[in-house]
Design a binder for these strands. Sequence first.
DNA 1: AATGAATGAGGATTCATTCAT
DNA 2: CATGAATGAATCCTCATTCAT
Lengths: 193, 193, 193, 193
Amino acid sequence: MDLTSRQMEIIQAATQLISERSIQELTIKNLSARIGVTEAALYRHFRSKVDILVAILEQFREHGEVVRREALQRNAGPMELLEFIFLTHVRTFVEKPYLADVVFSEEIFQNEDRLADMVRSMMQQNFDAFVGMMRQGQQAGSIRNDIAAVELTTIFVGALRMLITRWRLQRFTDNLEHDGVSMWKALQRILST
Amino acid sequence: MDLTSRQMEIIQAATQLISERSIQELTIKNLSARIGVTEAALYRHFRSKVDILVAILEQFREHGEVVRREALQRNAGPMELLEFIFLTHVRTFVEKPYLADVVFSEEIFQNEDRLADMVRSMMQQNFDAFVGMMRQGQQAGSIRNDIAAVELTTIFVGALRMLITRWRLQRFTDNLEHDGVSMWKALQRILST
Amino acid sequence: MDLTSRQMEIIQAATQLISERSIQELTIKNLSARIGVTEAALYRHFRSKVDILVAILEQFREHGEVVRREALQRNAGPMELLEFIFLTHVRTFVEKPYLADVVFSEEIFQNEDRLADMVRSMMQQNFDAFVGMMRQGQQAGSIRNDIAAVELTTIFVGALRMLITRWRLQRFTDNLEHDGVSMWKALQRILST
Amino acid sequence: MDLTSRQMEIIQAATQLISERSIQELTIKNLSARIGVTEAALYRHFRSKVDILVAILEQFREHGEVVRREALQRNAGPMELLEFIFLTHVRTFVEKPYLADVVFSEEIFQNEDRLADMVRSMMQQNFDAFVGMMRQGQQAGSIRNDIAAVELTTIFVGALRMLITRWRLQRFTDNLEHDGVSMWKALQRILST
DNA sequence: AATGAATGAGGATTCATTCAT
DNA sequence: CATGAATGAATCCTCATTCAT
């Protein structure tokens, strides 16, 4: 997935476009206008519009993986891992709010089978990774045992998404960083033994 | 918002279309074909495509209100209220899976200002209602006090949405009813004192 | 051409609609809405939209004839006839400004052969009547003889039309009655010996 | 207003279409068919249909200005100026009869505010220029003084328009050039002292 | 008389994409 | 690499008209 700098420019512009206006506004015309080239020029860099969307999803997958890998390298317990991931996600959105509109909007990509499949598998992969961490925490005794890992994960991921969704629907007016920390503290209290 | 039977037929077909195919496939052509009339015929029942989407949202708003009102009439404590609402929503989706694709997909409606505003206010109204219940429960002593009502609501609503989202992305293969009950039990354990 | 009262109501509404908005806005929908009936209802009174336009033109033809007949009954010389007709037309427009938009707008009816033919023959008939008057005046010695009747008529009719056209394009802000009298005095000076 | 050759081709085709069939027949479909391209192709050259109409009007405005400027460069008295302009207009229509249908048909453009405003201001600008010439002639003693310049202009412009209108309604069968010269001679006799 | 529902044809415009230059 | 011009299919929507009630 080595992207040229032009390709990266395109998918960033595309992401912003989706965020600022909605997926319906992500047209080849709008996209090329934003970058400042002709519509035809885009086809030098991507074979089709779907390929651009695939690249966007691919980038998210990689971002998720990077965050998880970074977390693992810290050699900390599951609880610290979850904290790191939670807060890193929050900070990513604080820095690049436009990502929020895309990253939690699976519906956007239901359009094409290829895209819907990618979303499905990413979500699954992500979810499974969290379930794994939960289980480890439960075995290690740092995470409560009276609720199954799947439910705990649903709560954890659901809370993160809900936090972002509300912030997003209020057009980024809340202080997400602050609310994120509060939210994590609540989750911590709930998850830990 | 009294809808004629034809109007109801249209918004139901529209909802299913969004669910089965995605919002991009909700075209006047597809919609009229599904109902078995001409495109022009739709315009006798709705003034525009946006009006159809507004009617869909309106229907959801009413459904939410009905569920909340029903819950309140049961004269039960906040905890029982939340249970009723949680499980009623789950059952609604079990019965009409296609609703799930629309009801939790705010992104779908970001297209038009009028729609985006409706989604925003519905979400807010809904969330506030839950925060109110949480506060009552906290005052009555049935809901834990060490976590703020807003965070508890984020967890509650987030978990419900996450549950549905996963089920939906797996194309409704899980047993949602069963998972919903498990999920509620987990939430109950978490929320109660 | 005996019109029922409903038919008269329709062609008056149609005339106003053309005037206020332009011929493009004269749709069966707009027209029926203005009258307060269903679109289908109009077809009880006219067999088609073209028939409505024909009725409008017919009404104008009759109006022109009535004015000319009235003028003739006054048993006056050609010069007084022209004055009567000129000022009567001006006063008709002062009273019903919306007529002005239609009566001098042949282009509006170029759409359909039947209508274009009507306009053509009305214009011709009208013009010929004026040429006749001019000739009579020339023979009687009250109208100048050094310019042919056709040219004098072109000037006479052209000036009337131009007066109305300017007033119309300025959205009826000038005092047409006053300008009309001035214009007639100028024409009088020019036409008479 | 520098037009590409394709743009000029389009507005010429549009002008002819209006002339041959009427404004209602000026559809993107008809227009593109006449040029021999797809409907979509037109949108590379004009942003909308209204823009095409604006370009047509703009072209007329420029034509009028060119004629007036040419006239002024001849360094002749007002009477010669009026003659030049009158006969030049007549000859323009003799060469391009299809223009006649558009150039004196303000009604055609009442459809859209932007267009109606253009027509209004063009007409006003044109009229004022003639009033100015009349006044100059009156001061110089070559144009009669007993009738106000506005009335003389109304007669002059009205006669020109009437001449063209009749010729047009008779589907260009008369000898316009010949009738134009006669008409000018009549006007000359009327205007001069 | 009038309505409500429907239709088929056509309106302007936008879409992703292609291709010669 | 990029452009300008083009395309065919699709978009939403409006038109005049019809017909059973």
